[in-house]
Design a protein around this nucleic acid. Structure first.
Lengths: 249, 249
DNA sequence: TGGTATTTGTTCGTATGTATC
DNA sequence: GGATACATACGAACAAATACC
């Protein structure tokens, strides 16, 4: 229930829109502990009646809270309070997927979704120190922790030097293990640039997110200990499930 | 114009909502170079007519693109293509506001918005290594580059050790300079945790953002060279204007 | 298995408020 | 003050997904 007395006071033409006032009340209601995690909210029509507004107005409020990752709406089922515990993914000199989440999730794995051989874009060529248009291998992978998607990476490798890394990746499910087959026993994170945006349609599907979800985006170059670039990668992390902990580089 | 022939083909009951199809077409249209940065889109009624849909449907499409930071709608003026060049803010062992943006903006400054003395929350106390409820000084600052807001920080200091740092900050406009007055000639970034979310109402106003904008959030602890915590800070960066470059720690 | 009720998602129509030029 | 354009709100209907019997 959204507070029996609480729901009363919506002020019209107060300078604050009704949908925002409703969103705030729902938010407070959740913060006050009226709803457990993953608990269902009353249906839209019920909320509309309770607040004395049109269903659209309630929907605007819910949409805003879905954007904020507070609620999660599922067609045909209802609207639920989104659980918000985040994994902490370390970024440092020796960033490795599986090791990074050790202790936070019992089962961690990396799944190869797709691979392709293609000419390098300018961005990729610069990152790998190759000529633009050089042939590179692109690997699309998804990281999972306890069955839930926590990252979606696109990595590029020099096709000349790492021919067959796609097969190795499919077999081992690990970049580190795959690189070992090419004589790379160690590699370091040279640079990381971080940004954030809304997930695009593809990432929404791959990461099992609701429209409007935010992804943290890292663009990184991994190099051999002597500084030779071996991998250029862009990784998207769902902001509602992951935070990035920057450790010593 | 949104492509003369392009605008034709909306597929109804195709499983993809009309507003999303329209959003995609507008996006392609921008990517194709039909609009310069900050150029105005045709008004909503014109777009609605062109696509043969209700104005609401166009509004849904525009709202989605505003969320993505692609467009910017200004009441009474129109809808514009958002410019997307980002400052690159370095995060490393010696992260300092002004130095970090050197070379990217000719004028950089930090403005003290508010200060207060208050008991430390559990989070702040833990970060500073103080007892919960210890008195701390909170400084609210905004970073600007060439007059545009690029960061919004909330910093906490031990009130016992740094009494008067609020005045120093107001006077110097620099954390580094203020700390010098307390005998701190050097400090290091001990830890940084990074996340992302939608800007709340206060940050929207302080950073001059449109509703739905995304902020990158860093939570950091600065320490003296011998490891003593001196500052705990949460900083919000507008994701549409800033990217974070992780340099050597 | 199938049909019905429930609940969210989409679309159209209309009216009014508010900010800008 | 008037015209233009985005913002908010209400009403109605149907579609799509899910739950339940």
């Amino acid at each position: 229930m959204i507070g029996q007395q609480m729901a009363s006071s919506l002020e019209r033409r107060s300078g604050v829109s009704l949908w925002r006032q409703i969103a705030d009340q729902i938010l407070h209601s959740i913060a006050a502990g009226d709803f457990a995690e993953n608990a269902a909210l009353p249906p839209e029509v019920a909320l509309a009646e309770r607040y004395g507004v049109n269903r659209h107005t309630v929907r605007s409020a819910i949409a805003a809270l879905v954007q904020d990752g507070v609620l999660r709406a599922e067609q045909g089922r209802g609207t639920f309070v989104q659980s918000r515990k985040r994994l902490s993914y370390p970024i440092g000199a020796r960033t490795r997927f599986s090791e990074g989440l050790q202790g936070q999730a019992s089962e961690r794995r990396s799944v190869l979704l797709e691979s392709a051989v293609e000419p390098a874009s300018r961005r990729v060529a610069e990152g790998l120190g190759l000529a633009k248009g050089s042939t590179v291998i692109r690997l699309e992978t998804r990281g999972e922790a306890d069955g839930q998607p926590v990252s979606r990476a696109t990595g590029w490798f020099d096709a000349g030097r790492f021919a067959g890394i796609d097969a190795a990746m499919a077999e081992t499910g690990s970049v580190t293990a795959s690189l070992k087959r090419f004589g790379i026993d160690d590699y370091l994170r040279q640079s990381t640039v971080l940004s954030a945006r809304h997930a695009d349609a593809a990432d929404l599907a791959d990461l099992d997110l609701q429209p409007g979800a935010i992804v943290l985006v890292t663009v990184a170059v991994n190099v051999t200990p002597d500084g030779q670039p071996i991998q250029f990668a862009e990784t998207r992390f769902p902001a509602e499930r992951v935070e990035l902990k920057i450790s010593a580089l």
